[in-house]
Design a protein around this nucleic acid. Structure first.
Lengths: 146, 146
DNA sequence: CAGTTGTTTTGAATGACTCAAAACAACTCG
DNA sequence: CGAGTTGTTTTGAGTCATTCAAAACAACTG
C-alpha cells in the first residue's frame, strides 16, 4: 500500500545517494514526511515510537546524512532549533509565528524570481535567496485578539 | 568631536528608551556602530579594550536590552551565532558567505516591497519579510577558483 | 546625599549539537 | 550464502552560545 511504496521510494533515494539502507534512515524519512518542519527531538520522538531504542545521536547522524544527500532540507529560523522537511526541490519559503514558533510553507513569492535579485551584491557570488516571513499564526491571532 | 557627539546621541537614545545610561551600554553601542554584524563574543572583545573587566554576561544583558529597545537589530543566519547591527530603521537584508560566514548588507531587493508579499499566507498575519542571500564572498571566490 | 530601582557581576545551568571510539549491521564478492 | 570490508549506530563525553539567579553595585529621583 501507500506505506510500502513510500518505503520503496525511500530505499531507492537512499541507494541513489550512495547511502546504505537502514531501518533508522527509513524511519526518519517517514517521520519527516509525515509532518513538516520537525526538529531533531521531534523526529526522535516519532522514530522511537516504531523503533524503540533508537538513540538521539543516530537521529542527528541520519538527519545530517540525509540533508547532505539532498533528501531533506534543513531550515533554521532565528530562535528555533534546526528544522527538517522533506524537500521537494522547489525552493519554497517559510512563515514563522513570532508567538509560538509554528512554521508553515509559503509556496512562492508573488513577483517571481527577479524579485530575489539583490540590487548590490557587495562582491558576493549569490546562489540562493531564502525568505522568511514573520507573523502570527491563526491560533495565536485568536488568542491575542480574543 | 565625532566621538563626543556619538556618545551624546547614544545617551539620548538610551534615555528615550527609558534605559539608564551606563558606560557598558555606551561602549557596546560604540562597538557595534564601529563594525557591522558582530556576535556577542566579538562585541565583548571590543568593549573590553576600552572598559577592561566587563563581563561577557553584561554584554549579553546589554545586547538584549538594546535589541529590545530597538537600538540594535539582531540577526541569526543559519550556522552563525546571533549577530548584532546598529539598525537604521530600514529593513535591509543580508548576504552570508557559505564558506567563511562573512555577512554584508544588501540594501534592498530589486522588485521593491510588492515582491515580498507571499502568495498564500496560510492564515498567518504577516508583519515582516526577511531575506537572506547565500553565496561566496569576494575573498572566498578568489581562494576557491585561484 | 540617601533611597530606590535598575544594572552588572559572579557562578552555575541549559539546550542543541558535535566529536570519538567501540559495537554492530549492510552491501560485496568469491 | 558466508566472510570481509566499509559504513552506520550506539555510548559516552564535550563544546558553544545563551540563559538563569542571587548578590554586589551604580544611576536616577527627590
Amino acid at each position: 500500500m501507500g506505506t510500502a511504496t513510500h518505503r520503496d521510494e525511500a530505499e531507492a533515494h537512499l541507494r541513489a545517494a550512495g547511502l546504505k539502507v537502514t531501518v533508522q534512515r527509513l524511519a526518519v524519512l517517514d517521520a519527516v514526511a509525515g509532518a513538516g518542519h520537525l526538529d531533531a527531538d521531534a523526529v526522535h520522538a516519532r522514530v522511537v515510537r516504531e523503533l524503540p531504542g533508537t538513540s538521539l545521536q543516530s537521529v542527528y547522524n541520519v538527519l545530517g546524512a540525509l540533508t547532505e544527500a539532498g533528501l531533506l532540507r534543513r531550515i533554521e529560523p532565528a530562535g528555533s532549533a534546526g528544522l527538517y522537511e522533506r524537500r521537494i526541490g522547489d525552493n519554497h519559503h517559510h512563515v514563522v509565528c513570532t508567538r509560538c514558533h509554528a512554521v508553515a510553507d509559503v509556496d512562492c513569492v508573488v513577483g517571481e524570481p527577479p524579485c530575489l535579485v539583490p540590487s548590490d551584491t557587495g562582491g558576493f557570488a549569490i546562489h540562493t535567496a531564502e525568505v522568511t516571513f514573520w507573523g502570527l499564526c491563526a491560533d495565536c491571532q485568536r488568542e491575542v485578539t480574543g
